[in-house]
Write a protein that binds this DNA or RNA. Structure first.
Lengths: 249, 249
DNA sequence: AAGGGCGTCTTGTTCAGACAAGTTCCTCAC
DNA sequence: GTGAGGAACTTGTCTGAACAAGACGCCCTT
């Protein structure tokens, strides 16, 4: 049983994506929607808050809500999992394990993963491909407590996050992402078939479980032009933040 | 008068940032907070929803909320306005106008700005500096209806968005941002003092007013290492989206 | 025809109560 | 000691009501 407000949101989302409400058009009022779905106004407000956070609709006090955009958006899991994202987009995602070994955590890794000094991590290097084209180099450090599960996975495993959830009940619940641009190193260049020093889009992310315990710290580097990150915001919501680079590390 | 739920959120945010609740610690329960602030549970829930969207706290049904992070975040306006962001971060932001002229809109600009074919735009090229260091090249196309206001501004105007709000009541309300990496062109390279082809972090964004009418379409290019974009998410919230680059334009 | 004023509509904020569903922790039995 | 069971706690969902505040359109005046 999905929640009622989720159903209402899905209904509205369908209507928007199908073009029933054009971009710029006004949505029905909250009380209208409440009647239609036999829900209270509070529940309707939860539904439209969801769509607002997706950037699909906008609102101002006193005026009816308006449609801002007409595009499909993706779920949380697809931000963490390259495999899930690719599948949702209709691409064939594959990967090649290039390296997998235990080693001591660097000071930064220990800090990010909230591990005591001298802890070990599982270091994994993977090349990711979309429809056979190399697109991204992934360097991940898994916290030692999660390492055994990852080591047990087959080498051709498509989605480590999916498998960890299925095998060991380790699920990603929170994520923090740092996005910047870096020049390709010689390894990056060879793997992604670009010139050394050419631009790569870097997404470093820390993934945590429901308790807030960090699972992995990852450095993903995308070949320029292969992906674009996309953010929507409104007055009152600020999901994305710009930080001075020098102070971050 | 700020809303009660905003005050509660500010109070909690202060407590988290000051370290009163450590990272990983459990927050008081909703009913606890409701008592303390003489508010209803619904209002408290609005407050914690705000902090959740900022990535400061996390929650799971049945368990008390936990503190995920202890960092200041910035507001919506600071994502659109380089000047406001820099000021909030404690930097001295300046800018140099290099170019400002009317011309016909390109097909892409017309589409992004929802202008009829053959419309004009105001093309502005600016170099942005932080503490005197060139950091970003900004190329903006303002919709023709907003152009006169921008043209009337002094050349040394620090924040165009601020001035437009003050002078003409044109306020930014919605934003959509596309983030990727590109090689520096020869102009970029000269202005930012980097080698041609070296990596730049590109943030293109469309800014709209409260009616959803596009105001400007901007291409900002940051010198690598100067800024990092930062996103937080949880299961159930997906503020940032990854798109295949080729299909976007 | 242009402008101001007012009533109506709509969203924003808040309250109090109820039940569902998941977590935590203590207790008791084995 | 250890594990199963259950009570108490906590968050998630939903209702119905009320008032505040901003937007919009209509009507009347000038």
């Amino acid at each position: 049983m999905t929640a009622l407000y989720v159903e209402i949101a899905e209904g509205l989302r369908r209507s928007i994506l199908s073009g029933e409400y054009a971009v710029g058009a006004r949505l029905p009022s909250e009380s209208d929607l409440a009647l239609r779905w036999s829900a209270s106004r509070g529940t309707v407000r939860q539904a439209v808050a969801l769509l607002t956070s997706e950037g699909l609709i906008g609102s101002r006090q006193g005026a009816r809500r308006i449609v801002l955009r007409r595009e499909r958006r993706h779920s949380f899991a697809e931000l963490h999992s390259f495999a899930q994202w690719a599948q949702a987009m209709g691409y064939r995602a594959t990967s090649r394990f290039l390296h997998r070994e235990r080693r001591g955590a660097t000071p930064e890794e220990a800090r990010r993963l909230a591990l005591p000094e001298g802890s070990g991590v599982l270091d994994v290097l993977r090349l990711r491909l979309l429809d056979g084209e190399p697109v991204m180099v992934e360097r991940t450090a898994y916290a030692d407590w999660a390492a055994p599960t990852v080591e047990a996975l087959p080498v051709d495993c498509a989605s480590i996050m999916d498998s960890m959830a299925a095998e060991a009940g380790i699920v990603a619940h929170y994520g923090e992402h740092l996005i910047d641009a870096v020049p390709a190193g010689s390894d990056d260049a060879r793997l992604l078939r670009v010139r050394r020093g050419s631009p790569l889009l870097r997404q470093r992310h820390l993934t945590s479980n429901p308790d807030g315990r960090p699972i992995e710290w990852t450095d993903d580097r995308y070949r320029a032009g292969s992906v674009t990150f996309n953010v929507s915001n409104s007055v009152g919501t600020a999901p994305l933040i710009r930080d001075p680079g020098a102070l971050l590390m």
